[in-house]
Amino acid sequence: MRYIVYILSLAGIVLLADQAYVRLGLYHDDIKTCNAELLYQLDSLKNTATVLYFGESSNFTAAGQDSSKHSISEILAEMHPEQSIRGISKGAIHASTFKALINRIDAPSTVKTVIVTMNLRSFGINWIESELETNLSRAEILYSNYPPVLKKFLLTFKAYDNTPLFKRNDIIRSHYKGDKFKLSNQEFTSVYEWDKQMYDKGLPDAHGNKDPEKTNIACHFIKNYAFVIDENNPRVRDFDAIVALCREKNLNLIFHVLPENHERAVELCGTDLDELMRQNVTFLKNRYGKASFFISNYDLLPDSVFIDREWPTEHYSFSGRYSVARRISESLISQTKTRL
């Protein structure tokens, strides 16, 4: 009898805690602290939008001189007034976040189609072990469908990937050395070798001297794109899970590979890097081409539309965002014809 009273008391406390956590506004505070506001965005859109566009900063980042600051998802919405297309995006998020968010779209929902961004760079170890990862992983607890008190419990007990930064850097370094690839024109087999040679030798400026800035960018390109995607890549596992989730929830799925600055990659690092990146796109196409509507925009854009010049990013000027939106729009139309 005594134990029954104990168990009932405990259950009572947990239920009370669940109510208090939400009603005292602490759940809302935690959502803010953990930068998980996408939760509100998704919860408000899943019952109004028909198409949800999931992306990272490539969706909304605009150049200062852009004629329009509209995001890719907004341009897409303008192209399809008959649909209610809304974007859910935040800087640095990736497949794991998309997966957690899509998991929240439960019936009844107005959402019929999800468009999911595939950023090649996000498959690389630099992004996988980014210093932002701990916070992103923490926010995913809040995106889950667990009761608020369980989310709080999981946050309190750090039930997320909270690998310290020095360890992440160690992991990155070991992948730079350990992950092997084969290039057609050069003998390097790892990021470490290629990056070291690039750094030591450097790229020449107009006068034939070593250009430190150009060399630096070339090293960044190598570190961010020189890898081979395989089925063990954590992003691949997440995209696999997204495919399964969309099937389960009966959602149309469009994957679109973001345009990369392939021209600059060739200019800085030679055709080898471009080849490696194309191989990765092919891998993704082979893996997801049948399970989803797959769009590859890899070489859609010229160097001139890429905004950031000191770091490889997928940030485009308005014309770039417009082109991406147009390609997705074409796919959306074709998908509507074939599936809806």
Binding site: S9, A20, L24, V149, F153, T156, K158
Partner: peptide, 19 residues
Amino acid sequence: TVLFLYLLFAILVFSGVDN
């Protein structure tokens, strides 16, 4: 007992979430 129940409640509701 009252103390433990409160502590449990407080941990579930008020604990900090920063890492």
